[in-house]
């Protein structure tokens, strides 16, 4: 029997669902499914963030598992360049929010690089 995760785009009234087999999906796989299900394209033109609807906390760790029957809020926003004009690099706290959603489409999970 298949499992369900419910999601709603932040600006939408209606809730949608992702069907899958198993007890949960990683944030990475859930984002990939949402992008695929909504035909959002190659992911280079936007970023996709997921939030816990009760706490408003962002699920910023791609490997975190969202258990089946959960609800999440999805947010599509413009892609941003990894490095801003003022020379600031990726800060750890918000690294999941930077860049674009291409990695969820190509299927290569993000590897956090240590500072050199």
């Amino acid at each position: 029997m298949s499992s369900t995760i419910f999601y709603r785009f932040r600006s939408q009234r209606d809730t949608n669902r992702i069907l899958f087999d198993g007890t949960g999906l990683t944030v990475f796989d859930l984002k990939r499914e949402i992008i695929h299900e909504n035909k959002l394209g190659d992911g280079t033109h936007f970023q996709l963030r997921l939030y816990n609807p009760d706490t408003n906390d962002e699920y910023d760790d791609d490997s975190q598992v969202i258990p089946r029957s959960s609800s999440v809020v999805a947010r599509r926003s413009p892609a941003v360049r990894a490095f801003s004009a003022n020379g600031g690099g990726m800060s750890k706290g918000s690294s999941a929010s930077l860049g674009n959603a291409a990695r969820y489409v190509t299927g290569k999970p993000r590897v956090l690089q240590k500072k050199q």
């Binding site: 909504n38 959002l40 599509r76």
Partner: peptide, 16 residues
């Protein structure tokens, strides 16, 4: 140049 939801303005970014 885009289709479906991708073609929309970034409505999630504002409380409509």
């Amino acid at each position: 140049a885009y289709e479906g939801l991708s073609s929309l303005p970034f409505y999630d970014e504002f409380d409509l």
